[in-house]
Design a protein around this nucleic acid. Structure first.
Lengths: 233, 233
DNA sequence: CGTGCCAGGTGCCGT
DNA sequence: ACGGCACTTGGCACG
């Protein structure tokens, strides 16, 4: 396996060579004093500070400070170029849609690590998808005698999680939420229910989730919609 | 200023010392072969691969692969401990609310950088806040003769962006969106408008944004709500 | 602390 | 490409 390359206090001309040579080939990590400018959907300035700058193989640019999960600035899928200036080393990361630019002005000689990162298999359980599957396979948890009609069915107003048919032949629209169901969840359900009613189809609607906010429950009841408490371990 | 400490192929016992000594003091960055397990609101496994592991001063844990803006696993504000095993070095990051655990099983001797990251001033323009301020200071862009009544006013159903009073003494609820207004935005507006109508207050509602999706516009019109195209440079 | 909501959200999948 | 939506969303502000 390729070893990491670790370089201390890299000269800007060398840094420029590194970026030319390793951009979209390896991951380049820098520790440096820098100022960051962003211009695009919004625009921002982050004043000079010591930060962690990451250029991934796919052109992702991440700029992290010492706290927080989120980067202070970033650029997905960018074309990154560099310029050696008088008083700074300039990193320019451009993406076209939306048209956005991030510029990093590096003020010192950064420490640089060049390395090859991999990608493992990633599996996750406990997503909304799992809850949908559970309801689809066990419609009776929503209502005794209900049968599966459709799963993740696309309408012009969004994708209905599950559609069931009750024993007395009514359609039941189910909106699943993996966490706390909120006002938005209720509105989604309202949207789907109204869509079917406007098509002249008699439907009921229910939310299935481990819990629901009080306001959301009130809105549900006001619209004569149902709630099913549902937790999958 | 403190220099970065750069260490190659660090022995696990040394790594444990480093983490004990520098956790919540400095930022620790590792390049290593690892497997990652997460258990909490959901649960996941990322199979063995070479990854970038970051432990920030505030206890943030980030695990990045070679592509994408988002980390494959993470843990905000965690308590991080470590264990030296037979065949791996184990990193355990726990947070209490919600109760979640991320475990990193490091399989090789990692390269490690210990460094002090700073935090600069961050300023941004072009947010929804800016749009709200603009409307609040120039109510006539929504309707000629309208006057400001309230800004970011909290109701049980959420925070109303702007409330204006028209020249014929009707209240106008304004929901601002910095980007494309979507179905959710319309539903927010519907919620606020209904709230006031149920209080017996006659109100109108408008969305102000640079653009709106066709479905959202249809929903607006169906509910007799207005749209104002509004772009602040 | 829960509830709501913005975010340069990102990522995924659909038409 | 646009649109709708989930996400271990994170982060903030307010009741």
């Amino acid at each position: 396996m390729l070893e990491d390359v670790v370089l201390s206090r890299v000269d800007w001309l060398v840094l420029q060579d590194i970026i030319r040579k390793y951009f979209r080939v390896s991951t380049i990590v820098m520790f440096c004093q820098c100022e960051v400018f962003y211009e695009g959907r919004a625009s921002s300035r982050a004043s000079e500070a010591r930060r962690l700058v990451i250029i991934k193989e796919d052109g992702t640019l991440l700029i992290h400070e010492g706290v927080g999960v989120e980067p202070v600035n970033w650029q997905p899928n960018a074309l990154i170029t560099s310029k050696v200036g008088e008083n700074h080393f300039e990193l320019v990361a451009v993406r076209s849609r939306p048209k956005e630019v991030v510029k990093v002005f590096i003020k010192d000689k950064p420490d640089v690590i060049i390395c090859k990162l991999g990608s493992g298999k990633f599996s996750i359980r406990g997503t909304e998808e799992d809850l949908i599957n559970y309801v689809a396979q066990n419609p009776s948890v929503i209502e005794e005698g209900a049968k599966l009609v459709a799963r993740e069915f696309a309408t012009p107003h969004g994708r209905v999680d599950v559609i069931l048919r009750s024993s007395n032949d009514e359609l039941i629209i189910v909106e699943c939420k993996r966490g706390v169901a909120d006002l938005d969840a209720v509105h989604q359900l309202i949207r789907y229910v109204e869509y079917y009613r406007e098509l002249g189809i008699k439907v009921r609607g229910v939310i299935a989730s481990p819990s629901i906010t009080p306001q959301a429950l009130k809105l549900l009841q006001k619209n004569s919609l149902g709630y099913v408490k549902l937790q999958i371990t």
